[in-house]
Simulated scan of single mutants.
Amino acid sequence: MFITDYPAAIRPFYHMCPDDDPGVTLSFEMPWKGLKVTTGAQREHHHVLLKQAAERSMSTEALRDYLNVIRFGYPPHGGLGMGLDRMLMAMLGLDSIREATFLFRGPNRLTP
């Protein structure tokens, strides 16, 4: 089961919105055993990305190379992030994600 049609206001600015409903994104989340194990979306690949960043008062300086790729032509694309540590925690029935994470990063450990 996938959860789709997230409001654009709560998703990253680079998630694409459909032309007929700009209030939602072409994104998804996949829960498994009560945990979100993956999230993904079709990425914006048009000049609209600049407008979406401006609406959120974001500087695009750090995105210069990515924006140049879009300016010169970029095919439709998407991506997802798999929460392997979350899935491992659920598969092994562990109580804490700390037990399933190879290098835990938290308030007292931010570097390996």
Rank of each mutant, 00 (worst) to 15 (best):
L84N: 05
P112H: 10
G79L: 05
A62Y: 06
H45Q: 06
S27G: 15
F72P: 01
T25A: 10
Q42D: 04
L49W: 00
M1F: 10
E44Q: 13
I70Y: 01
N68H: 12
M58W: 07
D20N: 14
P75E: 04
G106A: 08
R71S: 10
R109P: 06
E61N: 12
R109S: 15
E99Y: 01
D20P: 05
G40Y: 01
F28K: 08
D5N: 15
D20C: 01
H15I: 00
T101C: 14
P76M: 00
F2L: 08
R109Q: 14
M30I: 13
K36D: 08
L110R: 13
L110D: 06
L92G: 01
M16R: 11
L84T: 12
T38R: 03
H15P: 02
L49I: 00
I3H: 06
P75M: 03
I10A: 04
P76R: 03
M89V: 07
P7N: 11
E61I: 07
M30L: 15
L35Q: 13
A53E: 00
D5Y: 12
G78Q: 05
Y6Q: 05
A90P: 05
G79W: 05
G93S: 08
M16F: 04
L103W: 10
N108P: 04
R71C: 01
T4L: 14
L103F: 15
G79V: 02
M91S: 09
A54T: 02
Y66E: 06
M91I: 15
R11P: 11
E61K: 15
A9E: 14
L80M: 12
F28T: 07
M30G: 09
H46I: 00
E55Y: 00
R43S: 03
V69F: 09
M87T: 15
F102V: 09
Y74H: 09
A62F: 04
L94W: 07
E29K: 14
P22F: 00
P7F: 11
F104K: 01
K33H: 11
V37G: 01
S96M: 05
R11H: 10
P18D: 05
Y66A: 05
D21V: 03
T101M: 10
A90K: 12
A54Y: 01
N108M: 01
D65W: 13
S59D: 15
T39Q: 08
M1G: 12
T60N: 02
H45M: 00
N108Y: 07
Y14E: 01
E55K: 15
D65A: 09
K51T: 12
L35F: 11
V37C: 06
R86P: 13
A53P: 02
M87E: 01
